[in-house]
């Protein structure tokens, strides 16, 4: 599938720097490291739960760099008033996971 990722390169840089600041181990952040960051958005927990469901693509309870970018993208869009989708639209799936 040849669709550009909706996470723009400049946004990815920003998300990557947040990711790195959280102290990933082996390129992966555990749920307990990501959770406070998402809670910090002040979005309702049920929304954040859905954001997690959509971004933890391999369902391992942890987020790698690309999964984290999906989570942050959804949080920022939600803060702008856009609804969080029930399932991940293809343009939001990181190219590395297709």
């Amino acid at each position: 599938v040849d669709i550009p990722w909706v996470v723009k390169p400049e946004e990815k840089l920003k998300f990557d720097s947040i990711f790195d600041s959280l102290g990933p181990v082996g390129g992966i952040l555990t749920g307990d490291k990501v959770k406070p960051v998402l809670l910090n958005s002040k979005l309702p927990v049920d929304i954040l739960g859905r954001v997690w469901e959509l971004s933890d693509l391999d369902r391992d309870g942890m987020l790698d760099r690309d999964e984290f970018s999906v989570a942050m993208y959804l949080v920022y869009r939600a803060l702008e008033g856009e609804p969080v989708p029930m399932s991940l639209p293809p343009p939001l799936v990181p190219p590395s996971k297709r």
Binding site: G31, K35, D46, G49, W52, E53, D56, R59
Partner: peptide, 13 residues
Amino acid sequence: QYPAGGSSTNPFL
């Protein structure tokens, strides 16, 4: 830490 499968991989549930 988390059981395989199931929604307990979600720290918000």
